[in-house]
Design a protein around this nucleic acid. Structure first.
Lengths: 262, 262
DNA sequence: CGGTGGATTGACGGATGTCAACGAGTGTGG
DNA sequence: CCACACTCGTTGACATCCGTCAATCCACCG
């Protein structure tokens, strides 16, 4: 999932480390490819991931916490529901969806994550993940072993505060999704979804007016609580009304105010 | 909101403090009635609010953090959206709803809180609350000034972990509500709602089979993403099917398995 | 070239919203 | 004590949004 014109390559592998692959740490489910991480202190996403006011000492400590990254291919899972919780993750490149599943097969996509956004916060509560995190495209995440992160947060007030804010932000995000699912029409949901995505892309230096959806209509519907046919119809309606120009997965937002008014 | 036969009185005012009212700490919005708190170390709800394995030293420290309680009358707000965030709260007696509101007047109830459950976690993220917390009946909360709580969490590993778990639990709770709103029929939502409430009451020593809803049909509907008439119809249907016996706000669950099968 | 999966569009039906009437319960004031 | 207003809950009739089912189209790929 990236914006056009894609500055993807620059953000994809900031200070791209072509270092030799390090022996993988023990992993519960699979021997996933891991690589030493680029240092947080020099990462181009640090402004998105990390508090703005960390001292250089704190960045040095942080670099000892975030030691590795992991590649996840399109369609593969970073973690699954019921996996033991060990680490938090930050999307470095690519994108993910998180899915909660009911025993009867009902699925709900609870979020789409793009670079700089956290993954895994659901696992802290019970020590076990409660959702699947699935890559929408070939992606990379930074791995933050939670035990070490906790230790660091006891030493650094700023980092401690940051982690609380991250989690609280997730709570607020989900609240507004509940509002979306509980009170809005299908048309309003899709409009809100597109505006939210646009804003998040823009905050990362991508174009907010034109971007590429890495998720299918079905996945969008599963996130917005509607069927894929309805998603498709709403896209068509927006096109008729001159609000967006959808071209398959390529989306151009023509009239932001119009979308907001829906 | 309490169970029948109400053991309400025992849980209502555990070790009820009839101490003189302490000079209220400065409060942004109102001079709310505050009283010194019963000590966490001797509170009958401590098993619900706090980690099970705190040492006595930690409880002593905790007692210096949770110094005051506050009464909130039915219909009044504990905090409002846009209020400055200062403290986390734990419901001690009574019950609350949290409501997020859109500028156009759309409202969504994001949760109902009963004794032992946290309030205010939404405020950490931006330093400003993002929802209203409104008492459904005359209620009491324990006040945990966030700055002091943070300090305590840097000293106590267990307390630090507990706060992370609390927040993560809220994230997971909201995820399952998204699933409810996104994938379930009106009938299934109401069934899930009743079962969830029953479980929470039971975990607090109340009856899970019979309880008293303090919220109106409209508030239930606003929480479950449906209209009050639909809530009412679903209650009637459950009654016809012999699953619950609703008597206004008094609810008796007759067939738990049947409700779960819906 | 055909097979496959995703997207689009149409026709139809059902779940739920909307509007309205009515009854029960409660508080208030004469 | 009663009359009254008011809120809340229930129920019915009808409308509508969206889900379901099906056909078609398109891009991609072996």
């Amino acid at each position: 999932m990236y914006a056009e014109p894609a500055c993807d390559s620059s953000l994809s592998t900031p200070f791209a480390a072509r270092w030799p692959i390090v022996p993988a740490q023990p992993d519960v489910r699979e021997a996933a490819p891991r690589k030493p991480a680029t240092r947080c202190s020099t990462c181009s996403l640090r402004g998105v991931c990390m508090p703005p006011d960390l001292t250089s000492t704190e960045f040095e400590q942080l670099d000892t916490v975030v030691l590795t990254t992991r590649n996840v291919h399109r369609g593969e899972t970073l973690f699954r529901a019921h996996d033991a919780f060990q680490s938090l993750y930050a999307v470095r490149t690519g994108s993910f969806k998180t899915v909660v599943m009911h025993r009867d097969g009902r699925e709900q996509v609870t979020g789409f994550q793009i670079p700089g956004e956290p993954l895994g916060l659901d696992g802290i509560c019970s020590g076990t993940h409660s959702c699947d995190a699935i890559a929408l495209e070939d992606s990379t995440v930074c791995i933050m072993p939670f035990g070490q992160l906790e230790s660091f947060c006891r030493e650094s007030r700023r980092m401690q505060r940051h982690l609380y804010q991250l989690m609280s932000g997730e709570i607020v995000r989900e609240s507004s999704l509940m509002m979306l699912l509980g009170t809005m029409t299908a048309e309003q949901r899709l409009a809100a979804f597109l505006l939210d995505l646009a804003e998040r892309f823009q905050a990362r230096g991508y174009s907010g007016a034109q971007f590429n959806l890495k998720m299918s209509r079905e996945e969008i519907g599963c996130f917005l609580g509607m069927k894929l046919e309805t998603v498709s119809r709403m896209f068509s309606r927006f096109q008729r009304e001159g609000l967006v120009e959808p071209n398959g997965k390529q989306i151009r937002i023509v009239d932001v105010e119009g979308l907001a008014r829906v």
